[in-house]
């Protein structure tokens, strides 16, 4: 069997599918043709840029550059987590809490994978560390973003009920338990769905890529299982930190509800 080779013109040819989508949007007056075009062009530009960057990074083989790249990824992920929230914590807590918990969880789990099962040489090998960190961080970003958005929205929605429990003498985490549970559940749903449907409803991108690149399916499956477990672990840890931290910030040392610590609501983007 020969390994398939992919050229730029092959990719350009399949972009006709996007043009068909755009044409359908115009025909049905959906008003998303422009968004579709911009998103597609953005994707190509971003991936081309990151491809060039990774080529330089892998060539440099410097842990400093690897750390710099990971830090830049964290900043972008932090921006995305914050931007997607209808209501966010006011001040530095808004971008800070989600970014810090997500980055800490993703970095810890990536390090565990690098020094544990993967063991590249050297252990910080950018070719392994950066894609791995990216996959883990991206999924943690989705979970933490969803969880924090659910928490801040739910405390406002259920303010009277939370206040009633506090007035009856409940400590803050007991009073907020229903919204903490709701936020944790909502944040974990994407990763639970991904694990439950993996291999049945869809073949994961990384596994498909490995198989297309010629790896034996057994090896590809083993890597995919490892990645899914790492993703679930990091998402759970980051989410727990973000939600407990958010609930702590939305109450004070007297166990009072402090919705004045939320920034004014804004429409979700």
């Amino acid at each position: 069997m020969t390994q398939p080779t992919l050229g730029v013109w092959d990719v350009a040819a399949v972009s006709a599918l996007l043009l068909i989508n755009g044409a359908l949007s115009v025909w049905l007056s959906l008003g998303i043709a422009r968004q579709l075009l911009v998103a597609a062009l953005r994707m190509v530009a971003q991936l081309a840029a990151v491809g060039a960057l990774l080529t330089v990074l892998f060539g440099a083989a410097s842990p400093i550059w690897t750390l710099a790249m990971a830090s830049a990824m964290v900043l972008f992920a932090g921006y995305e987590v914050t931007a997607r929230q209808t209501r966010r914590l006011a001040g530095g807590w808004g971008p800070g809490l989600g970014t810090a918990t997500m980055a800490l969880a993703a970095a810890t789990v990536t390090l565990v994978a690098l020094v544990g099962p993967l063991r590249p040489d050297p252990w910080h090998e950018a070719r392994v560390a950066i894609p791995l960190f990216g996959m883990i961080l991206g999924n943690a970003m989705t979970g933490v973003g969803l969880g924090l958005d659910t928490l801040t929205t739910a405390v406002v929605r259920d303010r009277a009920a939370l206040d009633a429990r506090i007035a009856l003498g409940a400590p803050r985490f007991e009073a907020l338990r229903p919204v903490i549970r709701e936020a944790m559940r909502r944040g974990l749903i994407p990763v639970i769905n991904a694990m439950a449907a993996c291999g049945v409803v869809f073949l994961p991108g990384m596994m498909t890529g490995q198989i297309l690149a010629g790896a034996p399916p057994g090896d590809a499956v083993l890597y995919q299982v490892l990645i899914m477990i790492l993703i679930a672990g990091a998402t759970g840890l980051g989410l727990l930190g973000a939600i407990v931290g958010g609930a702590w910030r939305l109450t004070d040392h007297r166990h009072r509800l402090r919705l004045d610590r939320l920034a004014p609501a804004r429409p979700a983007s």
């Binding site: 009277a160 206040d163 009633a164 506090i166 007035a167 009856l168 003498g169 409940a170 400590p171 040392h253 007297r254 166990h255 009072r256």
Partner: peptide, 12 residues
Amino acid sequence: GPAWRRMVRYVA
């Protein structure tokens, strides 16, 4: 706060 509110009870 909770100990105080278990004795001093607000009814909305």
